[in-house]
Design a protein around this nucleic acid. Sequence first.
DNA 1: GCGACAG
DNA 2: ATCTTGTCGC
Length: 250
Amino acid sequence: MCDSGQQKVEEKLPEETLKRWESEQAALKLQVIENNTEEWQEDPLFCGLERVAGVDLSFIKGDDVTACAMLVVLSYPELEVLYEDCQMVAITAPYIAGFLAFRETPFLVEAVLRLQREKPSLVPQVIFVDGNGLLHHRGFGLACHLGVLTRLPCIGVAKNLLLVPGAPGKEEFKDQVKAMQKAGDSFSVTDTCGRVLGKALRSCDKSTKPIFVSVGHQISLDSALRLTQSCCRHRIPEPIRQADIRSREF
DNA sequence: GCGACAG
DNA sequence: ATCTTGTCGC
């Protein structure tokens, strides 16, 4: 009777925890490198790039705790799966927009460490992360977080636009989306000050719904956008798509 | 004040 | 994230 709609079992975090998370993000943000650090990143054809990775967590229907952490490594430019690591994990942190990293990062870092330990030759040269990088409330999304902790180049790819203080107005946004007619078209997402936080990209001709690319770590936005597009056979870049698909069949 | 809000 | 079949189209 007191039930109004679907209530989610969201743990209430102490205000103090959020403050601690915010300061942790601020501290780690100082280590983010927002430009290219590798030679292949400047090459028009990404010559020298051989391995790209994708990471993703999948959950089960009614279970808010159990998840499957997936890391896949694909060859480039063929985009064939070279490596797959799936681990069932117990999530501790709740989902809070702006703090996704504290929920997923621990398990993704674990997966990268396992790979470095067991198959060093397959360690990726860049990781596609399902979430944002600099396109974030405090300029430090999941892709930045994972990049700093692993010291690997990371690209943030979100399927939906995260509402950040200076981001697009709804009407203007719709018009900009409509203006993208073909695969590869894009427009900048900026903050209040006009700084570019990321790009909305039409990743394929089939879908009109854009994806949102932003810098995670050790790669420029231009290179990130170019590489993302070159990894798109469907709307979602193949590395993330494979991680997503394979994490559900377990 | 209320709502919106990556996965 | 997950709940979900058929259906329209290349």
